[in-house]
Structure formats: structure tokens, C-alpha cells
Design a protein around this nucleic acid. Structure first.
Lengths: 236, 236
DNA sequence: AATTTAATGACATTAACGTGACATTAAAAT
DNA sequence: ATTTTAATGTCACGTTAATGTCATTAAATT
């Protein structure tokens, strides 16, 4: 398995250092931030698999960052473990209520923390995305990054593949161009909104090409954006 | 929300009782088991939303049950919180490794436990629920921005969709044209009052089009404006 | 019957989307 | 290192759908 990124958010150097060591032994890749601003930037840019978040931070409390993350669509799925020196029960409840996925009080044993990280990753990564998405005879194979229509492969560019993968894992839902840019291109990339249209066209063209025509799974939602739907459009 | 089932697995009556009280206050439905066999039967039969599992149990340790649950496909998605009197770090790691989703050591504060339960449920139930409005076989799907009549989609313009969405979320109430303009078009947009009539007509036409005719859900209130009502008009 | 109010059809205008071409960049092949 | 190929993002133009308005007709109210 490719080592996963863990973001450590703590203002004390000694703690970050200790965590980094423990995590690297357990074969994680570490990112570090010592304040809210850096942390948020790293989360958006690097998309870590998990965030270890200290309660007390300069420039706003960790709780604040946590709320911000859970509010935003593109970051709400990233699991967060809150770290705190405080043992006050109230903190735990506030943290969990704000959407923290786990909670560890200092001083903590590195091995326990690692076990908790693994438990969370197992949960968040495990349940969700399948390595094979299908609608009718249209099959998207995540591992080989290929699309099949009736068992024969069809060609498309990487972006079109990503777009289709996103659509197939989020069907029956209308997305704006900006949402698609965020999810498929990634945040912090600036491209014109209308570029999405062009890739939609390329994707539709590719889906036409096969033995069967699956291009109308990609539907235009006027005034909004696009939608992937197996439920079909209105017939005549 | 319908109250969710929580299974308490503990051999001590006093602990079960304490938990039951705390959980019922928090509006959960409680199931209880005092040994592995009963617990397993209840999990299979009742499918609780979450399991609170004591570490030490007669007839096999809780860890054993945990492994069994996580191995089986039909039960592996049920979150488990391990409860233990032991504070040994090793236990925590073993438990989390075996697939426990969280871990709480006795004595614990009921409020914390409730918060952890809610956090876990939020995460696992996080499998998205759709935002939809329905009247009979007329369904407005907010997420996909589509209207269905008897499960087949029908077409309408964005404004008609917004209008219908507003009506369906504010039924049985008459609105003036100006109120509709404010709510559906947005404040500080200037369009003629009579424009509303035209969109009402378009909406009615769209609602006629399907297999069934839902156009008389949109009722004219002479001298005032319009109303959405599922109660039907007075038949002559 | 006269008057008020709503429904309807038609139409010009505007906004949103589709499409082909092209320059630029990134990746592969040589 | 150089060439070839594919992918990407952007623009300009064509097309279609949506919108708002008005004149006319129909219906309800007085």
C-alpha cells in the first residue's frame, strides 16, 4: 500500500517531532502545521488521509478549524482526531459534536494513537469506494483505469476518466461546474468554469463511441450544471 | 428521527442499568445482553445501529465476538464501541486492531459515551440521505433537481422547478404574486407581477404532461395569488 | 351586462449550453 | 536531447432553451 499522508497540527515542536517519528515508523507520510492557516492550506492542497488536530492553537482554536472542515463538502470526509492536554469531559463532547472522529488526551501512548489512526482509516477508506463501478454494460475499472462497454474497452483522456469516476460514484445528483472543478480537478486549481463543458463533451463523445451509446447518462441541468443518472431522460 | 437501537453487552447488571438510563434519556432504544451468545443472537435478529461491548464476558471475551462480527459481511458495518475496566494500553490496541470503532475505559462519563455514540452514528449513517419532497406519486428530488411522476422524470424549466420546490415546501398557503417573486426569483429583482401567471401556466402544463395529471395542485386564489394544496379543489 | 381578474398563445430578447478549432503544455517515443 | 503524440484549457461562434412582456381571450364577480 502506498503510505498515507497524515497531517499533524500542533504548535509545540517537541510534540510534532515525537508524532512524526512514531508515524514514520508506522509507515505514514507526515505533514506538519503549527497554526490554523497553514493547516487549512495543507489540507486543501495536499488532501491528507487523516488530520491530528491539537485543541489549543495560536490563531484560533482547533475546534474552529474542525468546524470549518466539516462544513465544507470537499473536506468533510477527512477524519480528524483531536489531541488535547485537557481532560475536561466538556471538551470531548464539544469536539465530538463538532464532528471529530476520535479524541485522544495527552499524554498518550504512540502505539495507541497509531491503532486509532488505523481504525479510522479502515473505516473511512474501507466502506466507500469500490474498485469497480457499473451501470448496465458500462463498467469503470478503478484499478486498471479503464472503461468498458459490453466488455470491450473504450478510450478517453485522464480527466474524462476522473470525471466519469466521480459521476459514477455520485449518481443522481446535480453538480455545478464549480463543484465538479473542486472534486475532479481538485481545489486550488484555477480553470475557467466553461472548461467543464468541454470535458463533458469529450466524455459524452467517448461514451457514444462504443457498441452501445451511453452518452445520455451525462445530463445537462440547465442553470445548474450536470448530473449522472441511470434513470434516463424523458423519452420523446 | 426514529430512535436508533443500541445493544449493551455487559455481564454486570448495574452497568447495564446505568447505561440504559443514560441512553434512554438520549432517546435511544436499548437492547441488552449479558453474554456472547445472547449478544450475537440479538445482533443478527435486531440489527442494532451500534454495539457497546464489554471486554470481559462469561463464555468468551468480547474481543472474540468483535472478531466474529467484523469477519461477517452482514455485521461488519455495525459500529462497535469497546468498554473496559482495564486501562492497559495493550487492550486498546488489540481492540482497535480487531476492528473496534472506538474505545472507552470505565469509569466513563455517560455524556462522553453518548457523544461518542452520536459521532460514530453520524459517520456510519453518513451514507447520504436524499432530500426530497413528495405528494402522492409526484416527487421533487432536490439533489438531482428533477421531478418524477410515478418514477418517470418530467421536464420543466429552472424557474418552474424553483417555483414548485417553494410550493411543495410551503403547501396549503396562499401567496401573492409579489411574495412569490420575492421567494422564488429573489428580492430586488424587478419583473412584472403578471410574469408569475405565465410561469404558473408553464408549471401546470409540465404537471399535466406526466402519466398522471398533477396540475390542480397549483390552485388560483382569485384576488390574491396562488396556492399549492394536496387537498384538491372542490369538485363542482 | 359591465367590470375585474386570470389564462393563454405568440414573440422578441437574453442567457445558457454545445461545438470546433487552436495554442500550449505534458508525456512518450525515438 | 529531440521529435512525436496526446491532453488540456480557452476562445469564438452557432444553437437551443428559458425568460419576460404583451395582446387577446376566457372566466369569475359585481
Amino acid at each position: 500500500m502506498v503510505s498515507k499522508k497524515v497531517l499533524i497540527v500542533d504548535d509545540e515542536f517537541s510534540i510534532r517531532d515525537m508524532l512524526r517519528m512514531a508515524l514514520e515508523i508506522a509507515d505514514f507520510e507526515c505533514l506538519e502545521a503549527e497554526n490554523i492557516q497553514d493547516a487549512h492550506r495543507l489540507i486543501v492542497d495536499e488532501r491528507p488521509a487523516i488530520v491530528l488536530l491539537d485543541w489549543m492553537l495560536p490563531g484560533g482554536s482547533g475546534l474552529e478549524l474542525l468546524r470549518r472542515l466539516k462544513k465544507n463538502d470537499t473536506t468533510s470526509e477527512i477524519p480528524v482526531i483531536m489531541l488535547t492536554a485537557k481532560v475536561a469531559e466538556d471538551n470531548v463532547i464539544q469536539g465530538l459534536d463538532a464532528g471529530a472522529d476520535d479524541y485522544v488526551t495527552k499524554p498518550f501512548a504512540p502505539r495507541e494513537l497509531i491503532a486509532r489512526i488505523k481504525a479510522l482509516l479502515r473505516r473511512s477508506a474501507g466502506g466507500e469506494q469500490r474498485d469497480r463501478l457499473e451501470v448496465g454494460e458500462l463498467v469503470l475499472d478503478v484499478d486498471s483505469r479503464r472503461i468498458f462497454v459490453a466488455n470491450s474497452p473504450i478510450e478517453m483522456g485522464p480527466t474524462e476518466f476522473n470525471l466519469l469516476q466521480f459521476f459514477m460514484s455520485h449518481p443522481e445528483r446535480a453538480y455545478t461546474r464549480n463543484q465538479l472543478l473542486d472534486h475532479v480537478w481538485g481545489a486550488n486549481v484555477y480553470v475557467e468554469e466553461r472548461t467543464v463543458d468541454v470535458h463533458i463533451r469529450r466524455l459524452r463523445k467517448a461514451l457514444e463511441g462504443g457498441i452501445q451509446d451511453y452518452s445520455d447518462l451525462i445530463q445537462t441541468v440547465r442553470g445548474t450544471g450536470y448530473r449522472f443518472s441511470a434513470k434516463g431522460v424523458v423519452s420523446e
